[in-house]
Amino acid sequence: MQHLDLQVIEQALKWSKKGHSVWLCTVLRTFGSSPREPGAMMAACEQGDFIGSLSGGCVEDDFLLRLKEGEFTCFSQILRYGVQASDAKKATVALPCGGQLDVLVERFPCNEDSLQHFSTLLESLLGQQNIVRYIDLSRQKRELSDTTLPASTVEYDETKQQVTVCYGPTSRLIIAGFSTVAVFCAQYAKMLGYEVILCEHREDSLIDFAVEGVRVEPSFPADFIYQANNVHANTAIVALTHDPRIDDLAMIDAVKTSAFYIGVMGSKRTSEKRAERLKRIGGLSGEALARIHMPIGLNLGSKTPAEIALAVMADIVRVQKGATPLVT
Rank of each mutant, 00 (worst) to 15 (best):
Q84H: 15
E200S: 05
E203Q: 14
E123H: 05
S119D: 13
T73W: 00
G48L: 09
R139L: 14
D146I: 04
E106W: 02
V319G: 00
M251I: 11
V214C: 09
L104R: 02
T26Q: 07
F178T: 01
L289T: 07
L6W: 00
V22T: 14
V154G: 06
Q162D: 00
S55C: 06
W23E: 10
D5H: 15
N111M: 00
A222W: 10
Q47T: 15
T147I: 07
E112K: 14
M42N: 03
Q161K: 13
C97D: 09
S76W: 01
R29C: 11
G168I: 00
I175S: 01
L198I: 09
I174L: 12
A186E: 04
K273F: 13
N234K: 12
P109H: 01
S55P: 05
R245C: 09
V22C: 09
S33C: 06
T180R: 07
L310V: 04
E123Y: 00
Q140S: 13
W15A: 08
T328P: 00
R142Q: 13
I174S: 00
L104H: 01
D247A: 06
I281G: 05
L144D: 08
A275Q: 11
G70H: 03
S285I: 06
Q2C: 02
S205H: 12
I207N: 08
Q129H: 15
R36M: 09
T147R: 05
G168E: 01
S179F: 01
K141V: 08
G82L: 10
T159P: 04
S119Q: 15
V83A: 11
S55W: 09
F118P: 00
I9A: 01
D146N: 08
R142A: 11
V105L: 12
A236T: 11
Q47S: 15
L198R: 06
L122Q: 13
S124C: 13
S179M: 02
Q2G: 03
F184E: 15
T241I: 09
P295Y: 06
A314N: 04
V59L: 06
T270L: 03
T148I: 07
L28K: 04
G57W: 08
V154T: 15
G48R: 07
I292L: 01
A186I: 04
Q162I: 11
K279W: 05
E155H: 10
V22P: 03
D243M: 05
P244W: 04
D113H: 03
S145Y: 02
P218L: 09
D208Y: 04
L121R: 11
Q116R: 13
L149K: 12
T180E: 14
G213C: 09
G213I: 07
Y188M: 11
Q128M: 12
A314H: 03
M41S: 09
Q84I: 10
Y156W: 15
K303F: 05
A288W: 00
I175M: 05
A288I: 00
D247V: 05
G266S: 06
A323E: 10
A186C: 10
T164K: 14
M1G: 12
A288E: 15
T235W: 01
K256V: 08
G39S: 08
V255M: 04
S55I: 09
K303T: 13
T148N: 13
A306H: 05
D157H: 12
A314K: 02
D49I: 04
V59M: 07
A176N: 01
V255D: 01
A40T: 12
Q140P: 02
C97I: 07
K89D: 15
T120N: 14
E307T: 02
